[in-house]
Simulated assay, not measured.
Amino acid sequence: MSDSTTTDPAATQEGQQPSVRVLAQYVKDLSFENPRAPMSLQKGDQQPPINIGVNVGAKGLTPTDFEVTITLEAKAGGDDAINFEVELAYAGIIRVSDMKPEHVQPFLLIEGPRLLFPFARQILADAVRNGGFPPLMIDPIDFVALYRRNMEEAQKRQQGEATN
C-alpha cells in the first residue's frame, strides 16, 4: 500500500489543480534621465528612434513563493543625442502551489511577466510622460518567444563552455 501524503508543497497531488496567487507587486528600481533638457523637449522634424529592452528573472523565496522581476529599458535618440533614457525593474511575489516542479520555471518566466507587464507598462508610460514626452506605450510582449530565446542562448553557452 502506498502513502499518498506528500510534504512537498510543489508536488502535484492526483486530480488537484495548480493554484497561483500574486501576493504583492512593487517597483524595485525606476530611473528616468533627460540629459538634454530643455532642448530635447522642443519639437523636432522627426521622431527619434526608440530602442526597448526587456529582461525577465525569477528567484525562489520559499518553496512556494517566488519573486518575478520584469526589467524594461527604453532609450530615445541616438548615441550622440539621447532625448531620454528610462529603466524600470518591476517585481511581484507569486505563490505557486500544486504545480509539477518541471512546470514551475516556465510558468514563472512566461506567465509571471504576463501578469506584471500591464502594470510595468503603465509606470513606464507615466514616467516618460512626467519627463515631458508623449507617453511611451510599449506593444504587448510575447513572453513565450522570449523564454524560448533565452533557453536557446543558455544551451549555446553551456555547449560553448563544455567545448572549452
Rank of each mutant, 00 (worst) to 15 (best):
I52A: 09
E152D: 11
R157K: 15
K28P: 08
G60D: 11
I93A: 04
Q17D: 15
L41S: 02
I82L: 07
V144P: 03
G160C: 01
G77I: 00
P49K: 06
V104H: 08
P134S: 13
N83S: 13
L146W: 05
A76V: 04
T7Q: 14
P140H: 12
N130P: 06
A125R: 06
F143S: 02
A89G: 12
K100P: 07
P106A: 05
R148C: 08
E153C: 03
Q46A: 15
D80L: 14
S2F: 14
G60T: 14
I50W: 05
V22L: 15
S40Q: 02
G112V: 01
R148P: 06
A37N: 05
S97W: 02
A11T: 14
A10S: 15
V27A: 09
F117D: 09
R36T: 06
L72Q: 02
K59A: 08
R149S: 11
V27D: 09
N164W: 03
P134K: 09
I50C: 01
L72C: 04
M99Y: 00
S40D: 01
G160H: 07
P134L: 05
E87R: 11
T5N: 14
A24N: 12
P63M: 13
F117R: 11
P49F: 05
V54H: 10
D142N: 13
D3W: 04
V96A: 11
G131T: 06
K43C: 00
A10Y: 08
Q25L: 11
V22Q: 10
I52G: 04
A127E: 06
P113I: 03
F133R: 03
V104G: 07
L124K: 05
D79K: 13
L61W: 02
L115A: 13
E33G: 05
P135K: 07
A120M: 09
L72I: 09
T62P: 01
I93F: 02
V86G: 07
N55Q: 14
R114L: 00
A145S: 15
D98P: 04
V86R: 04
K28I: 09
A81S: 14
D65A: 10
D29W: 03
L23G: 01
K100I: 02
F117V: 03
F107V: 04
T6W: 07
P134A: 10
M151H: 05
M99A: 10
K156L: 14
A76K: 01
I50K: 02
N34R: 12
R36W: 03
M99N: 07
I110R: 06
A125I: 02
T6C: 11
E152Q: 09
Q105S: 12
Q13V: 12
Y147T: 08
K43T: 09
S97H: 11
S40C: 02
R157H: 07
A127T: 10
G112F: 00
Q155A: 15
V86K: 03
P49Y: 04
L136G: 00
P135R: 07
V56I: 09
V104P: 01
S4I: 13
E152I: 13
L88A: 04
Q47S: 13
D126P: 12
P9Q: 08
G132E: 05
L115F: 10
M151S: 09
R21G: 07
F117Y: 07
G44R: 07
Q25K: 11
T12N: 13
